[in-house]
């Protein structure tokens, strides 16, 4: 067993958190709670957009949730649309400007509760858009109430003893629904609960945008995010809680990739 030598300073200079700010953010200040996973997810998307050379070739359509505050700090052309309607608004944008990468930023309340019809019909039409879903299983913006994606047993402000399927019904697994439809090109589920998952999720986002650029159809990248405030758990426990609760109902990985399916089997 080898040990890291600690008697000398590290060879590389220490990096401040602020240095991780993607260039497509106008400021590193945001208004999300400590332990929130959304800011990490958005950072990954902005990095991918820049790396794909889409900084001046993209429009973002933002739904209603905590992430909505990024409408003021993301340095991309964007609109904050009505709750749940981002895939519809994106359809209008993409059909008029097919040369532009169009993406939505939605939470689970926005996509699976208020906007279920819009995401499914945009998928059915095979719109060439990339939908980013930040899924934490609660309405975080209003303080932690049940959404359509709250998992069985999960405590929220209006399922105080946990989501009871007999009383509250079952969660909608939107990723699987979208993957089952012909119009989707790519569906994947990542997470931001640890460094490895963050790196993996970035690759999923990148592939999602690539499928849009290839005009293969709709891509959905679902990102499980921590919401310790909305879950009523200590900030430091967010990552573990995420995997114990949502992680079991929403397994990580690529759910569908139309390009891979088209390739001959090994």
């Amino acid at each position: 067993m080898s040990f890291v030598e600690t008697t000398r300073p590290p060879s590389a200079e220490a990096t401040k958190i602020a240095d991780f700010k993607p260039s497509l953010l106008q400021t590193e200040e945001h208004h999300l709670c400590p332990g929130c996973g959304e800011s990490v997810a958005i950072r990954l998307v902005l990095e991918v957009i820049e790396e794909l050379g889409l900084a001046q070739k993209n429009v973002c359509v933002i739904g209603h949730g905590c992430y909505g505050s990024f409408v003021q700090i993301m340095d991309v052309d964007c609109t904050l649309c009505l709750h749940g309607r981002a895939p519809a608004v994106s359809t209008g944008i993409k059909r008029m400007r097919p040369e532009v990468a169009v993406w939505t930023l939605q939470g689970d309340g926005d996509m699976t509760s208020e906007g279920l019809a819009e995401i499914l019909h945009a998928t059915a039409r095979g719109e060439d858009i990339t939908c980013i879903l930040v899924n934490n299983g609660v309405f975080g913006d209003t303080g932690g109430q049940m959404t359509a994606s709250t998992v069985v047993g999960q405590r929220t402000k209006n399922t105080l003893d946990g989501r009871d399927p007999d009383y509250h019904g079952y969660p909608i697994v939107i990723g699987d629904m979208v993957a089952s439809m012909q119009g989707s090109a790519y569906v994947a589920r990542g997470s931001v609960h640890n460094a490895a998952s963050i790196a993996k999720t970035k690759r999923l986002i990148r592939t999602g945008f690539e499928r849009q650029l290839e005009r293969q159809g709709l891509s959905l990248v679902e990102i499980l995010t921590m919401c310790p405030t909305g879950w009523f758990v200590p900030t430091a426990d967010g990552a573990d809680y995420l995997m114990e609760s949502l992680g079991k109902t929403y397994p990580l990985g690529v759910i569908k990739d139309i390009t891979k399916q088209a390739e001959p089997a090994d």
């Binding site: 001046q56 070739k57 400007r97």
Partner: peptide, 17 residues
Amino acid sequence: LDGTSGGTGNSRQIWTF
């Protein structure tokens, strides 16, 4: 919103608020 203003510091926004 034609998508061309990203990263320029003058990106555009359509927002009810």
